[in-house]
Every structure is written in structure tokens, then in C-alpha cells.
Design a protein around this nucleic acid. Structure first.
Lengths: 205, 205, 205, 205
DNA sequence: GCGTAACCGAGACGGTACGTCGGGTCTTCCG
DNA sequence: CGGAAGACCCGACGTACCGTCTCGGTTACGC
């Protein structure tokens, strides 16, 4: 973890009439540490301020509510991860599920953080909006996978790209929210195959 | 709604050294009403007690925490809903999505309540366990849809019934949690078709 | 202490349509024990009922409120103590202060209990009334000391007996309520002498 | 009463990172009013907070418990009252009893408040210590009455000044705690005379 | 000799208050 | 103007007792 301890540090002072990056760092660090240590419950603005040696108003100045902060912690961890073009849709989607969703959540705090964000979005309208916006942006990126396949002639042009991505993401969310990421990582290929080709041998009556 | 007003009722008394069903009813009623009126936020034990004209200790006596109460409210609404056999899997699944999940959540408080339960399950371990158990039970019922199709020869015997149901349920959860049930109800058929047959015209390279 | 343990005893049953002395004993025992163990604070009807293995209504049936119970505990300890006639008022009053008030309170739980009663009388009207009645009764007995002295010709017939007793009792209360019984027992004789003869050598201008 | 109504006032805001005197005033005012209106019972932190439009935490921030608050209310009322020198001990003591104790308690809330303080001192150790300290300070002032008389040659130098004051104060407490201040104010002179000269016509055997 | 009345234990009930925690706002002071 | 600090009001948390009530069972007394 790239978190440097700030507990015993000298209190940061203002650096004049502009945002102090050190404070923002300290706050995000503290938030991440808290999430790691005490989990979603017990993650409060108050606790973050205490640990970061920051004033609550400093937090509220830059993040309108707890959700925004949580989401920022999430984004911070979400290093830019490209969507490498494997040349075929199946492997693209497998990689998407594995490295951007399930595997990514499993391997870091991010699963925890994202669960927190989703939970808050059920309570808080602002959080819901923020999450929706974030979702839309992420999906629009993921949709390029499908568009690439269309360009290759792998799937027809009239394919509903968004729906396909929705199905993939929905599956990942479901597993995340039920704490079943481990099981999920076992069946990624099956899931992708099902979404691409449907039920093998399906014979409608 | 099957809720009869209890606000102006005479205060309930103890009926001796055992649980007073009227109180429990009033508490669950009040909880449901509150969820309907103010949503998940603002749904507090304190508010429930006020509206139900019940003492807080009476609530805590029977429900260890807010999650338990919320789950009880959900179960209360979840009337037994059958899975009518339409004779083909496609219509079965459409009916499942429409009447048991998306449409059901849209048409009542249940969507709201379920969102609350899922949110709390991210914070509270007990809630998570309760939700998992409930999920497992519901899914095991839904799986019979697939099994019926297997018996009809509609799908091969080796089809992973649970995965199919998981995909369907995942999609519904995703829409629920993002507050997109209305949009979801428009594309139920497309979703089912995709899950059954995959991407139409998919031509793997 | 004459308290026999009742915790592990078989629960007492009703003995028919009359007061069960065993229950009353157990309740008073439990109350006394609690006062001895946890002091005035933490002495609650609930705790008494638990320890005595009695139902709360059984307590409320026989004692209208906590104060009445406390007062009964006090009376229970207050074994009949006569006012032996020493033949002169000074020794009578010294004995009264020493054996009925200060020394008596010092040597047992009674000081504690009486402090509790007085404290409750400040809050509870019923308690105030009960205490007043008890006071009146006790004082009327003590007044006989003065009447005996009148009969002996030791003090004039027009002496205000009640006032003299009031002064003696007031002094004892004051010391009790400030937790200064130990110091008080040292100056009993001086107090009595002052009350009987006033300030020695007082020469009004 | 010097209490200005704050019920309908605009809610006080924070005045920055330091104690808001307006809040403290409002809280003490509310406490005094409550004591005046509903007496010692029903005087709760909760009720004070409600009436003062203050948060409970604000009260607990500055007063560790109810006793501390009650004592502050008492001190607030205890305006500096001098001990005018009448030139003779009898009138000095009568004035002391009448204006500093019995009459003072009768004429204001102070009797009520002081009863509350004494009651709480029986339960709470901190309150007991505070009361003792207050008592000691008050008595040390009152003792000057006797010292003045000594200087005048009215009483011998070896007179136990503290004991005389104790007797006077004890009598006042006793009447206060039994709610007999009205009766007490009738017999102030008799009490003082008895303390000064003893039982008139006392003839020890 | 049998109903009935009062007692007993138990414990749930609606309440009130407790003392604590956190949310989000505000203001002061310093840089 | 930014940032630390911390007080402010508010409201919810979960707990402890209060005094009342009803229950099922038991026993003694009176008809």
C-alpha cells in the first residue's frame, strides 16, 4: 500500500488560498486505511478526519458527502487499466470480467469500497447519481469491446452492445454483493460463453 | 395495501407474559409505511417506534437490529407466488423476471425494501447471512423452471441451471440497485432471448 | 446478617389468597443486600425483583413505590430500641443521639438506607409523606424523654419539647447527609450540652 | 426572574471553535425554569435540552452529569449576600437564618434546587464532594458572626463557633428537607434563643 | 367439596431518560 | 481564500427502569 503514516506527523498548515494536495492525500489515505481496517461499518467522516488530522469542514469542502469520498477512494485505486485487444470478443470479455471486475475486486480493497458505494447509493440520492454517472462512464468504455467486435464482423452491427455489457456487469455485481467473488472467478469462462452463445443446444418448442 | 391505520388507536397494553401479536403487527405495519413514505433513509427504529406507538425496547426485544426488522417486512410482503408452467422456457423466464422480480418490485414497496436489505447486507454480517439464505431458497425454486425445460427436452440435461438463473437474477438486481426498473421492464424479452440464445449472429473468429 | 440465600432456591409459589410471608422476607432481604452491595444508586425495583426471584407486581402490590420499600428495609433493621430512663435528661439525650441516631446509623446499613429514603423524599411526594409520617412517629416517642424530665421537674412545663427534639434530630440528619457520622460521634456530649444550656457564658448585650 | 424566554428564538448556531455563552445561558435558564415548573422530579437532561433548544451532547460536553448542572444552577442564584452586623449575636443569627437560609430558600427557586443537590449528593460521590466543599465555604463565612460576638465579649473566646453554626444550619436543612420551611420561619427566634441560652429554666439533677 | 377470590412467578407492554456517536453547518484564527 | 480546530443543533443509537397489565397456576376460604 502506498499509504504513508500521518498520525504522528506535524499538523499540515494551509498553503495559501488554494487546495492543499497533502491534505487531500492524507484524507484519502486515511479513508482507505479505515476501510481496510474496520470495513464498511465504522467508516465515518468523523473517523477519517481524526485519523487524517484534518478538520471535518476540510473534507466537506471537497467532497459533498461520504459517498463522494468513498467513490474517490475507489477511483484512486482504480488505476488506469486498458482493455487490451485480444483479437476476439470472447477473450476480451473474459479479460474484462477477470481483470476489471471480479479479479480486480478480489485482489484489493476495491471490492470492499465498491460494496460500500453501492450500499450508500441505496440510501443517498447523491450517491445514487454519482454511482450512475460512474457506471455510465465505465460502461461506455466497456462497450468499445463490442464495437471492436462489430468492426471485425464478429457480431452483427445491430447487436445491443450495452445490453451485453450490462449482463456481464450485472453478473459481477451480484457476486460481489453476495460476497461470492471467489466462486465467481471459477466460472468466468462459462458465463462469457453463455452470454455469447446462449444455452448450448437450446431448442425452442 | 393491507395496512390498517393504528395511529389513532388506543395504546396497546401488555397481554401478559407473552408476545402481543397486535404490537408486532403494528410495528411491521409502521415499518412498511415508513419505507413507503420516506424511503430507506429516514427509516429508523426510532421512527418506527413513534409511528407504531410502541416503545423502542419492544422493538429491540424481538428484532436484534434494524436489518432483522427490514427483512421481516420484506418477508411479509413476499406472498407465495407460483411459477405457472407456460409450456416453454422462454415464457417461463419472462414471467419469472416480470412477475417475480422486476414487475413485482416495481409494483409494491418490495423493491424499496429489498434495496434496503441488500444495502444493509453490505454492512452487517447477520444481514448478509440472512440475505444469502433467502437468495438460495428463492433460487432453488426458480431453478425448477430450467428443470422443467430439461424434462421437456427443451434444453440439454447438462445445462447449468443455476447459472442461467443467476444471470437472470443478476440482471434484475443490477437494475433494481441502480433504480432502473422502469427501463428494465421494457427489455425483459430481449434479456431472456439473449440468455437463451446468446448474441444473435455471433460468429467467433 | 440474618439473610439466607434465596437465589438458587426453588421459586416460591402462592400459598393461597393471602400474603406469602416468605416472599416478603425474600424481597426485603434482597433489597437490603442490594443496598449493601451496590449502594443507593443501582438500587432498583427491577434488581430487587430479580434477586428475590419475585415478580414486580408482587412488590408493587405491597409497597406502592420504591420509597415505601426502602423505608420498610429501614424499619426492619430498626429493632425495637427502648429509651432507657437514665434518670436525667442529659444522659437520656446522649443515649438517644448515640444509640438511636448517629451510632445506630454508623453501625449498620441503616445510615445508608436512611440517606436513600431522605433522598427519595426530595423527589417523590409519596416518599415525602411517608418520611414525614415516620418522622412524626419517631419524634413523638422521643418527646417522651422531655416529658419525663418535665415530670421530674428538670425542665419547666412550658418547654417546647418538640423543638428540643427537632434540634437534636436536625443535627444528626445534617451529619448523616454529609457523611460525617464519624466526626459526629465525637461531639455528641457537646451538642447535648449546648442544646440544654446554650452557649456557656453567653452574655447578651 | 431574570430569565428571558428562548423557546421561540432562532436556533443558535455555532460561533466557531469555542464555547457559545448564549448556549450555556440558555441551558442554565432552561434548567432553572424546569426546576421551578416541574420540581426536582421531571428535571432531566433531556427536558433541559428540549427547552433550551440545545443538543444533549452540548450539555454533556460542559457538565459531566446532572448534578454538576444542578449545582451550577444553584450557584447562579446564590447572589452574594452579606452578613450585616446588627451589633448583637441574637439578631445576627436571626438574620442569618431568615435571610440566608430559610427565608432565602422560601423566596426563590433556591430551596428547590438545594434540595435537589442534597438529594443527588446521597447518590453521587462527585455531588457529595461538591456539596461538602460548598458547605465548608459557606460555614466558614457564617462563623464570622460568632467571631464578631467574641470580639464584642458577647460570648467567651472558647466557644465552639463551628458547632453553633452547625446547629443553626442543621435546623434549616432539616426543615428544608421535610418541606417545612413555612413553619420554620415562624419559630426562627425561638430556635436562636434556644441555641444561645439553652432550655430556659433547665435545672440539671 | 367446590367455586372463587386473591396470591404468586413471570415477563411483555408503552414510556422516559440515559449517555454516546455521527452528520453536516458554522465561525474563528492562522498562514 | 485555504485549512485546522472544534462547538453547534439534531437525531438516532441501544440500554435500563418505571409502573401496569395479563397470564397460568396455586391455595385457602365460604357457600
Amino acid at each position: 500500500m502506498t499509504i504513508d503514516e500521518t498520525d504522528s506527523a506535524e499538523a499540515r498548515r494551509s498553503i495559501g488560498a488554494r487546495r492543499n494536495p497533502a491534505s487531500q492525500e492524507a484524507i484519502l489515505d486515511a479513508a482507505a486505511e479505515l476501510l481496510a481496517e474496520v470495513g464498511i461499518a465504522g467508516f465515518s467522516i468523523e473517523a477519517v478526519a481524526r485519523r487524517a488530522r484534518a478538520g471535518k469542514p476540510t473534507i466537506y469542502r471537497w467532497w459533498p458527502n461520504r459517498t463522494a469520498l468513498t467513490l474517490d477512494v475507489y477511483k484512486r485505486f482504480k488505476t488506469a487499466r486498458a482493455f487490451p485487444d485480444t483479437g476476439n470478443l470472447r477473450d476480451d470479455l473474459i479479460g474484462f470480467l477477470d481483470r476489471q471486475l471480479i479479479g480486480f475486486w478480489r485482489g484489493s480493497l476495491c471490492g470492499l469500497v465498491y460494496r460500500a458505494v453501492i450500499a450508500e447509493a441505496q440510501t443517498d440520492d447523491g450517491a445514487a447519481a454519482a454511482l450512475l454517472a460512474y457506471q455510465a462512464e465505465r460502461k461506455s468504455v466497456a462497450v468499445t469491446l463490442i464495437e471492436r467486435a462489430k468492426a471485425r464482423g464478429e457480431v452483427p452491427a445491430e447487436t445491443d452492445s450495452v445490453l451485453i455489457i450490462d449482463l456481464v456487469v450485472s453478473y459481477a455485481w451480484h457476486r460481489l454483493l453476495l460476497g461470492q467473488l471467489d466462486a465467481a472467478s471459477q466460472e468466468i469462462e462459462t458465463v462469457v460463453d453463455t452470454i455469447l452463445r446462449g444455452i448450448k443446444g437450446y431448442r425452442p418448442l
